[in-house]
């Protein structure tokens, strides 16, 4: 009983402590990204661009492939049922709406978490273990400005950009199945897609993707700064970073889906 109470208490305290740390990190990041530059403190733009290339451009092959396949899978699954009603042209509606609203942002975010969220944690964690973070502090260089802000900006651009491309690729996947396998007319498929989609679907997807970017970056950075001990600590926090990040992405997804229902 004492053990149980102690465990609950400790977990709660740890959770509160983590929440407080994340809040401080958030305020700090926003401060150094949006407020301090106005006061003449620069942003490390070159580093941000390098990170954008790493997070966004280099992840496109795998994100593109996966999104194309998901488009194909969705269309194939839908084709069977819809064919019974002779309504195969509605594959376009299904693929279009679910890509834009849900699957393209979600898949992109999950893939970028696995690829770059983990990399952020590992990089910051290794720097912490090697006293490099301390070195920054002693030199009077703010680690948030120096390490977090470029990643934050890069992520904030990379995820929405990748999401737009994923949406197109996913719809293209559906198109390929419908036109070349199911036999829907190409013109009908395109018309049907354009008719089905509204601006709201696109906006929903984009809003989600921006919030996913924020989650990926902050969880990655937070876990990185939490690393204690040596290489083992880096490994543990990297795993935890991906798991936590995916959990929060789905949670945020749920919230926005409810809000935009």
């Amino acid at each position: 009983m004492t053990y149980l109470l102690g465990y609950t208490g400790r977990s709660t305290l740890n959770l509160l402590y983590a929440a407080a740390t994340v809040c401080v990190l958030m305020v700090d990041t926003v401060n150094w990204t949006f407020i301090q530059p106005l006061r003449g403190r620069g942003i490390r733009m070159r580093s941000a661009v390098e990170h954008f290339v790493e997070f966004g451009v280099r992840s496109m092959p795998i994100v593109g492939l996966i999104c194309f396949l998901i488009g194909v899978i969705m269309a194939l699954n839908a084709a069977g049922t819809l064919a019974t009603w002779g309504a195969t042209r509605y594959i376009a509606n299904l693929v279009g709406v679910s890509s834009l609203r849900e699957l393209a942002p979600l898949m992109t975010a999950i893939l970028i978490t696995g690829r770059s969220g983990s990399a952020i944690t590992a990089e910051i964690g290794t720097m912490k273990v090697a006293e490099e973070i301390d070195a920054l502090n002693v030199m009077g260089l703010n680690p948030t400005k120096f390490l977090v802000v470029p990643k934050f900006l890069a992520m904030l651009c990379a995820v929405p950009c990748a999401t737009v491309l994923s949406m197109l690729i996913m719809i293209f996947g559906g198109y390929c199945v419908s036109v070349y396998y199911v036999g829907v007319d190409s013109g009908i498929y395109i018309d049907q897609t354009l008719e089905a989609l509204e601006m709201k679907d696109f906006v929903t997807g984009m809003v989600k993707s921006v919030f996913f970017a924020v989650v990926i970056c902050w969880v990655g950075v937070f876990r990185g700064f939490q690393v204690e001990g040596g290489a083992e600590g880096v490994g543990r926090q990297t795993t935890s970073s991906v798991v936590t990040s995916i959990m929060f992405i789905i949670f945020v997804d749920l919230v926005w889906t409810v809000l935009f229902y």
Partner: peptide, 29 residues
């Protein structure tokens, strides 16, 4: 931060930034 600019520190494991060249490390501050 002002005071820290007048302090220098050599770390046990050197704490050089591994992603930068030696020259960039020294030039960074």
């Amino acid at each position: 931060i002002e005071i820290r600019r007048r302090l220098g520190m050599c770390f046990q494991g050197s704490a050089l930034f591994n992603s930068m060249t030696i020259g960039d490390n020294v030039a960074l501050p």
